[in-house]
């Protein structure tokens, strides 16, 4: 069965994620309601403002159901603000919004907008040329729990992508670059979670057990 992948569409650049997934011939749709959340095989939490998205998740009673879906194994990928939402530890927030991923996230870790930047980075599980990564008021991921694997680090060793079982977090924005390989990785995660055989191009190393 083909996966249906939702993109949380409360605020941020959700349309770019939907467009990228559709370019990969994936059934992608915007998620604003509980009913839509229930029909997702996987969910992307897009870039945007984490405080805004968190407020709306709470206001519209989506937070608990989202947490429950992720804990029951639904693959989820947070980009930038989305990664902040997923983290268990966010020093700048009193209470981490979704709080499911065993990582610490520092918001605006590189400074203000004038410090935003682009870089070419190698990502584990992604073959070929480096990924072109766009960092916009980006967070940094640290203090990874024992089940969390770093997928990508900057030259100075700071972690900007990681995976914990069904959860993927990136500090940067693959949806802005036209490079679809991070999205392909997530689609593979969703297919694996659905029990469908991974596509031939998936490397053996990407198949892993799930909680």
């Amino acid at each position: 069965m083909d996966p249906r992948i939702g993109v949380l569409a409360l605020q941020g650049d959700f349309r770019e994620h939907v467009d990228t997934l559709r370019a990969l011939n994936v059934d992608a749709f915007e998620v604003r309601t509980l009913a839509q959340l229930d029909t997702c095989d996987g969910l992307i939490l897009p870039g945007g403002e984490s405080t805004t998205i968190a407020r709306l998740l709470i206001a519209f009673d989506l937070l608990e159901p989202l947490r429950a879906r992720i804990r029951s194994g639904m693959p989820v990928w947070g980009t930038c603000a989305g990664a902040i939402l997923l983290a268990k530890r966010v020093p700048q927030l009193d209470r981490p919004p979704v709080g499911v991923m065993d990582i610490t996230v520092d918001r605006n870790a590189f400074g203000r907008q004038i410090d935003s930047f682009e870089a070419e980075l190698n990502v584990r599980e992604i073959e070929g040329a480096p990924i072109h990564a766009v960092f916009i008021r980006a967070p940094v991921l640290r203090d990874l729990g024992k089940n969390v694997e770093a997928l990508c680090t900057l030259g100075d060793g700071r972690i900007v992508a990681c995976r914990e079982q069904n959860m993927l977090a990136t500090s940067f924005h693959p949806e802005l670059t036209g490079d679809h390989r991070m999205h392909e990785l997530f689609v593979r995660m969703v297919r694996e979670a659905m029990g469908a055989p991974a596509k031939p191009r998936a490397r053996a190393g990407t198949t892993r057990s799930r909680a």
Partner: peptide, 11 residues
Amino acid sequence: VKAGLAQMLKG
């Protein structure tokens, strides 16, 4: 990155 921040403000 300049136009990208505006993308994040959308919605």
